[in-house]
Simulated scan of single mutants.
Amino acid sequence: MGLSSELKLAVPWGHIAAKAWGSLQGPPVLCLHGWLDNANSFDRLIPLLQKDFHYVAMDFGGHGLSSHYSPGLPYYHQNFVSEIQRVVAALKWTRFSLMGHSFGGTVGGMFSCTFPEMVDKLILLDSTPFFLDSNEMESILTYKRRAIENTLQVEASQKPSSVVSPQEMLQGFLKNNSHVGEECGEILLQRGTTQVATGLVLNRDRRISWVKHSFDFISMELFAHSIRRLQAHILLIKARQGYYDVRRENDADKAPLLFMLDTMRATLKERFQFVEVPGNHYAHMSEPHCVASITSSLRSKGRVPARLQLWAQAVEASCSHLSAANKRGGGDGPRWS
């Protein structure tokens, strides 16, 4: 399934860039990339998915080829949620599915709870519908203060974008993104950089480089209340070597994740499915065949297939075989009848 077209959707501060695959007449799926990534995040996955769907992967504002926000306008989590509404309104979609990786899944989760009647299915790729923070009440004012201070510091610095060689750009990118392999890093940088006379510059807005500026952290009570609003079916695909908490020092604390899983199981019942796949946080890029096999739930009408866990076990066995075959210089991805 080749790329159908590049899109530019008008917004008050410029445009939202996106890329589309598949049939215009097919069921629509909006794909949301992770923090500081771009729409190329889905380049290896979407060609492996069902071809009779219409997939659109957008660049969030300040990312990829999308316009930066106007000077003085901050990048808050709610802004990214509203960008989804702007995009689907421009596309004239009234009901659709969302597929989001990491930060994109969290933005998609907030949208799905805010506009529950619009979202049919929500597929989360090593992500959760919200970022849960057990210390949210103690920390929230600190987060808000630091976000404001960081924005003002970036605006005041007026520091020009660094120009580096392609190799330096890639090495710096990989150093700051330990879960991204070299091939996947090159794919993301194709859309995330611009060639100038003396090298490459990053496209993304420097104001989004501080993580707590772009994420909202919510309490357990607000999470439970929000999940009750969902009408969508949810498929959460967790990478075994992935992570959820953007503050890396807390990655080992699984209590928030377990609370979210238990809450979604109890609240959504058959509308929630959880599957683990081999790979790291970028499994949808590095192991796309594994993830593609699981996301066949897009085709189902109603609930996610009951055989999903069995499929996941077969996928893991097949992917292990695939990885071994690739090391020997060959091998195909898992096939399903």
Rank of each mutant, 00 (worst) to 15 (best):
M110Y: 03
G104S: 01
L132G: 00
I123M: 07
V164L: 14
V164Y: 10
F96T: 03
E168Y: 09
L170W: 03
K175W: 15
L170A: 11
E183M: 12
M137E: 00
V88G: 02
K175D: 07
Y143N: 01
P166F: 15
M169W: 05
Q167C: 05
G172I: 12
T142D: 00
R95A: 10
G181P: 02
R145D: 05
A147H: 07
L122Y: 09
E117C: 13
L125R: 06
L141A: 12
A90Y: 03
S162F: 11
V87W: 00
Q85T: 00
R86H: 08
P166K: 14
L125S: 05
E136L: 03
D120C: 01
F130R: 05
Q171M: 14
E136G: 05
L124I: 02
V154H: 11
L122F: 08
A89H: 12
V154P: 02
P160Y: 15
L124Q: 05
V163Q: 05
L122W: 10
M118Q: 03
Y143P: 02
G100A: 14
V107R: 04
L174R: 13
F115L: 07
S102T: 13
S127W: 10
L132D: 02
N135Y: 06
F96K: 02
F131K: 12
G100T: 09
Q85H: 09
S112F: 00
P129F: 11
V154E: 13
S157C: 15
R145T: 00
L124W: 01
F115V: 03
T128V: 11
M118W: 00
S127L: 11
F111M: 06
T114W: 04
S134H: 15
K144Q: 12
I140W: 11
G105F: 01
D133L: 01
N135I: 02
W93Q: 01
T142S: 07
H179R: 15
H101T: 12
K121M: 06
A147G: 05
S161H: 14
P129K: 11
R146I: 04
R146C: 08
K92S: 02
A156M: 07
N176Q: 14
C113V: 06
V88S: 05
F111E: 03
F103P: 01
P160Q: 14
M99P: 00
R145Y: 03
K92E: 06
D126C: 06
Q85Y: 03
D133I: 06
E155M: 13
V119Y: 08
W93A: 00
K144I: 09
T151S: 14
F96Q: 05
P166S: 11
